[in-house]
Amino acid sequence: MKHLNWDDLRLLSLIAQEGTLRGAARRAGLSPATLSRRLDQLEEAVGQKLVERHQGGCVPTTFGVDMFALAEQMSDIALEVEHAQARQNASSASGVVRINTDEWLSYFLTTRFAPFHDAYPDVEVEIVTSHRPYNLARREADIAIRPYRPEQLDLVARQVGTLSFGLYGSQAIATRYAAAIANQDWTGVPFVGFDEPRAEFQSDQWLRALPGAPAPWMRCSYGLGILDGVTHGAGLGVLASFLASEAHGLVPAIAHIPELDQAIWLSMHRTVRTTARVRAVVDFVGLLFAQYHEGEG
């Protein structure tokens, strides 16, 4: 057996968790071609095939099943080492803090985080935007900020605020359809919303349920696309209220949609909650949401 690259075993663990090279490559921050090459190198090092690759995904060989189990054990040990290191560095406000959140909240953070750098110049912040929640126990991220409370028992969570939504349009749309908006006669009003794969989102379900409203004629795969379309006169769209208040020239057709309110939860693994860099970020995020709600009042 040739010398093993232990990092390749970590990649093998990701393949086991995702079931596809593409999914594992995305988690690892590699291209599928690079991950495939690394898998080839690992199979060459152990002298046996580990994975049967099919169009629908990856199926481990008998030997691969044993190697997957060992890779998982190594991943768990590596996490314990990281946790021990985090505890050792608990008094040092330096290093990288990764925040996993969704699109609206990502925009909320990135547009407000600049003062943090002045206070903590040695802390680097990575804001990872995804609809899929990252696994905090496996240190895919240090902090998650999501519109629901996590269920994992090893996470520490607290509600940091509430995100509200409204129905907005540009000044041109508000003027053109003023009578219809005032009467809530949505029959001939143009709308902007999510595309079909995201039509199950609560905001899009609400929009499509408006009495007499046509389906959105402009459909986007991401929330900021809706903001762009609404801002530039494509129609009415559901937007997070903080976005609409900061965007120039947007007019509320319905300023607040109570049924779309989202409780926002910040969560982290219990082993990182006392580290100085994570604590600094958590406190700053709490301050941002407190200021946001003070501004609403």
Rank of each mutant, 00 (worst) to 15 (best):
E294K: 13
Y222G: 00
V51P: 04
G295M: 05
V238G: 02
G169Q: 05
L70T: 11
D40K: 15
Q159L: 01
G64T: 09
H117Q: 07
F191R: 02
P147M: 05
V192E: 03
L50M: 02
G56E: 11
A45G: 01
L224I: 12
P133M: 08
T20Y: 08
R37N: 08
P150C: 13
G249N: 11
S94Q: 15
L155F: 09
T111H: 06
A71C: 01
A45L: 07
V125F: 01
T187D: 08
L260T: 06
Q171L: 13
T62A: 13
I181P: 00
D142F: 03
I143Y: 01
W206A: 06
V128L: 15
V282W: 06
D66P: 00
L239K: 06
F165D: 08
S91D: 14
A209W: 00
F113T: 08
I143Q: 09
W186Q: 03
F194C: 02
T34C: 06
V281L: 14
R219I: 01
Y134L: 15
G166C: 10
A199W: 00
R198Q: 13
I77Y: 14
S203C: 07
Q171C: 06
E126R: 13
Q202T: 11
F242V: 15
A234D: 00
F113I: 15
R270L: 02
H232I: 00
T62C: 00
A84R: 11
A199R: 14
R146I: 09
N89W: 12
G229N: 10
D195M: 07
A244M: 06
A144S: 15
Y107Q: 09
A25M: 05
S130P: 02
L14C: 05
F116P: 00
W265A: 05
P211M: 06
C220A: 05
L39F: 06
A137E: 14
L11T: 08
L207W: 09
G56L: 04
T271C: 03
S130L: 01
T111S: 15
L239H: 03
E294D: 14
L250Y: 08
D195L: 05
R138W: 05
L236F: 10
G223R: 03
G56M: 12
E44R: 15
I226M: 07
G237H: 10
G233F: 01
